[in-house]
C-alpha cells in the first residue's frame, strides 16, 4: 500500500559543511495532492527539494518515490527549478527549452522529431506561450521564463512534480496560468510539491501544506494545519507577516 505514495520522507537529515540544515524531516504525500512547502528564509526548503532528487547528499534518513529510491523512479519525477538556476542569455528559443524535457524520451543521441516538437508546442499552448515558441529566451519576461519551465515540466508527463518557488516575482497572468496548470495536474491524479513564499495565497492554492523551519513544524491538510499557532511556531515574531496572514485567514473565514 505504501508503494502508491508519491513521496514518503522518513527521518531526513541534511547537513551542509557541518551544520545540520534540516533534520528529522518526515511526512507523507498522498497522490493527487497539491502540497505547499512554506517557511522563513534559510529554513531549508530548497535543501529539502534537492535532497529528494539526489542533488545533494543526505546525512541520514530516507526518501521514497512511489515506494522506491529516487534513482529507480526518476522518470516519474519532474522538476521546475528556480529561474536563477540557468543563464537566460543562452542561445536557445523557448521551444528548445521546452523540448529539453523530452530528451530522455527521445533517447540519447537520437534526433528530435516532428512529433516531439508538436508535443512541446502543445505544452506551450497549455501555459499560454503558444505564440512565443521561436522567441529567444533572453527576450522573455520573468513570467514567460517561468512558464517556459512549467511547459518543460508538463512535457515530461511526470507523476510527481517538485517546484522551487514558481510563483516568485511573476505577473498576475502568469500566476493564474500556473494555478490553472496545478489544478489540471491534480485532476489528472498527479502530485505537486511546491515551495511557496506567499502565505496569503496558501489556503487558496494548496490542499496540503508543510510548515518547515529546519524541521517540520506541522504538515497536513491546509484547513487543519494552517493555523495562527502553527504559523507563529514557524515564523516567530515577525508581526507584519503575521498581520498579513491573519488578514488572509480572516478573509477566508468570511468566505471572501
Amino acid at each position: 500500500m505504501t508503494s502508491t505514495l508519491p513521496l514518503r520522507i522518513e527521518d531526513l537529515t541534511v547537513a551542509y559543511h557541518r551544520k545540520p540544515v534540516i533534520w528529522d524531516v518526515a511526512f507523507d504525500v498522498k497522490p493527487g495532492s497539491l502540497v505547499g512547502v512554506v517557511g522563513p528564509n534559510g529554513a531549508g526548503k530548497s535543501t529539502l527539494l534537492k535532497a529528494c532528487m539526489d542533488l545533494i547528499p543526505v546525512a541520514s534518513g530516507r526518501v521514497s518515490i512511489f515506494g522506491e529510491p529516487y534513482k529507480v523512479n526518476r522518470h516519474r519525477v519532474g522538476y521546475v527549478p528556480q529561474r536563477e538556476s540557468v543563464d537566460w542569455d543562452f542561445p536557445v528559443s523557448a521551444l528548445d527549452v521546452v523540448t529539453m524535457g523530452l530528451y530522455r524520451e527521445i533517447g540519447w543521441f537520437r534526433p528530435v522529431r516532428k512529433k516531439h516538437k508538436q508535443a512541446a508546442r502543445d505544452a506551450m499552448e497549455q501555459v499560454g506561450l503558444a505564440d512565443l515558441e521561436g522567441r529567444q529566451i533572453s527576450q522573455l519576461s520573468g513570467g514567460q521564463q517561468q512558464r517556459t519551465f512549467l511547459a518543460r515540466a508538463l512535457v515530461q508527463d511526470a507523476d510527481l512534480y517538485f517546484m522551487d518557488e514558481p510563483f516568485a516575482a511573476v505577473d498576475a497572468a502568469t500566476e493564474k496560468a500556473i494555478v490553472q496548470i496545478l489544478r489540471g495536474m491534480k485532476q489528472q491524479g498527479k502530485t505537486a510539491i511546491v515551495i511557496h513564499h506567499d502565505l496569503q495565497t496558501v489556503p487558496e492554492y494548496f490542499d496540503h501544506v508543510v510548515l518547515l523551519n529546519m524541521r517540520v513544524v506541522a504538515n497536513g491538510p491546509t484547513e487543519e494545519v494552517f493555523t495562527t499557532e502553527n504559523l507563529q511556531k514557524t515564523y516567530g515574531g515577525r508581526l507584519t507577516l503575521l498581520d498579513q496572514v491573519t488578514e488572509a485567514m480572516r478573509r477566508r473565514d468570511k468566505g471572501e
Binding site: 542533488l55 543562452f90 536557445v92 527521445i106 543521441f109
Partner: peptide
C-alpha cells in the same frame, strides 16, 4: 550527434542529471 546532449548539459546540467544524463 551529441547536439542536444551538449545543449542540455550546457544550459541546465541539473535537469540533465535528474533525467539520467
Amino acid at each position: 550527434v551529441g547536439y542536444k546532449e551538449l545543449k542540455l548539459t550546457s544550459f541546465d546540467p541539473a535537469l540533465a542529471d535528474t533525467m539520467g544524463l
